Amino acid sequence: MAYDLGAVAQLDATVTDAAGNPADSDTMTLTITLPDDSTVSVDPVTPTSTGSYSYAYTTTQPGRHLVRWLGTGTNPFAQADVFDVREQAPVAIVSLADAKAQLNEASNVDDDELRGYVTGASLAVERELGTIVARRPFSERRTADSDGQILLSNVPVLAVTGAVSADGTTTWAAADLDVDTDTGLVTAVAGAAPLAGDVDCTYTAGLRIVPDDYQLATSIIIQHLWETQRGRSGAVPGGSTEPEYMSGRGFALPRRALELLDTPLPGVA
């Protein structure tokens, strides 16, 4: 389950006795391990009804959260689970409304699940293109070469907001840095301290204007994955079917989507 940052994650556990009937543990504790490895502990958790435990946790960090329920005493219980919290800037080449329009979906029942498909399809498109499409911030540590240059991992770069040496002794403001937006090559401007050693960089990458063919390809992939997940055979309008291409990176990408992205097709030299 994925939540937006700041949303309330509803965590639940159900305890039964040896006969399978709802029953309380003598004590129940809940531990949530956050992405930064800090923990939130609730001890004890009071049952809302016999055998039912619930806790509403307001999320504060993006990333993977680990959940651990532990009941002791007459009816011992242990359960581990996870949930994810999305970054504030979603990875989305198309909007939820666009995806629903592609699926002719009017109901809001599947919105949370569908948003996961939007993110997955968007990441697949970016991997096929080898470039960032959905504009969002990045933070990463890079090592300067002997010429005082750093090559950022994600392009095109829209802006470098700042950098700081890994040991914290030197800071570069945005005005101190020059960046080649296409390659991600960063250097210090004349008069600023040269980049050296390991440097932590913060920047934004992506496209300010997303081409229509990128958006359409993403929508097609969403539709393909959504219908496949629901047991449909991948029929296209007119009743025909097309061969599927398994990209080798966890996504089955329809041929028509790859053609829109202008990426090499399997078996085509």
Rank of each mutant, 00 (worst) to 15 (best):
Y3P: 06
D4F: 01
L5V: 05
A7C: 08
A9R: 07
Q10S: 15
L11Y: 04
L11E: 07
V15G: 01
V15T: 07
V15Y: 03
T16N: 06
T16K: 08
A18E: 15
A18Y: 15
A18C: 13
G20I: 07
N21R: 11
P22K: 04
A23H: 04
A23S: 10
T27A: 10
I32D: 01
T39R: 05
V42P: 00
V45P: 09
V45M: 10
V45G: 11
P47A: 08
T50G: 06
S52K: 14
Y55T: 03
A56Q: 10
T59A: 02
T59D: 02
T60W: 04
T60F: 04
R64Y: 06
R64G: 02
W69E: 01
L70C: 10
G73A: 05
Q79Y: 14
Q79A: 15
A80T: 15
D81R: 03
V82M: 04
F83T: 00
D84A: 04
A89D: 12
P90R: 00
V91N: 13
V91Y: 05
V91M: 11
A92W: 02
S95N: 02
L96Q: 03
A99K: 01
A101N: 14
Q102T: 07
Q102K: 12
N104L: 12
S107R: 05
S107C: 06
V109M: 11
D110E: 12
D111A: 04
D111E: 11
E113R: 10
L114G: 02
L114E: 01
Y117Q: 00
V118E: 00
G120W: 07
G120Y: 07
G120S: 13
A124L: 08
E126A: 04
R127F: 03
G130F: 09
T131A: 15
R136F: 03
P137D: 01
P137F: 03
S139R: 14
R142H: 12
D145M: 08
D145K: 09
D147P: 06
S153H: 10
N154S: 13
V155S: 03
V157R: 00
L158R: 06
T161S: 13
G162V: 02
G162P: 01
V164T: 13
A166S: 08
G168P: 02
T169L: 12
A173W: 10
A174E: 10
A174C: 05
A175I: 09
V179A: 08
G184P: 12
T187I: 14
L195N: 04
D198T: 09
V199H: 08
V199W: 08
D200R: 07
C201W: 14
T204G: 03
T204N: 04
G206Y: 05
D212T: 07
D213S: 14
Y214I: 00
L216P: 00
T218Y: 05
I221G: 01
Q223P: 07
Q223Y: 07
H224R: 14
H224A: 10
W226N: 06
T228K: 11
T228G: 11
Q229S: 14
R230T: 05
S233M: 11
S233T: 09
A235V: 15
P237F: 07
S240E: 10
Y245E: 12
Y245H: 14
R249F: 13
R249A: 11
G250L: 04
G250D: 01
G250E: 02
A252L: 14
A252E: 14
L253S: 11
R255V: 15
R255F: 13
R256F: 02
L261E: 05
L261N: 03
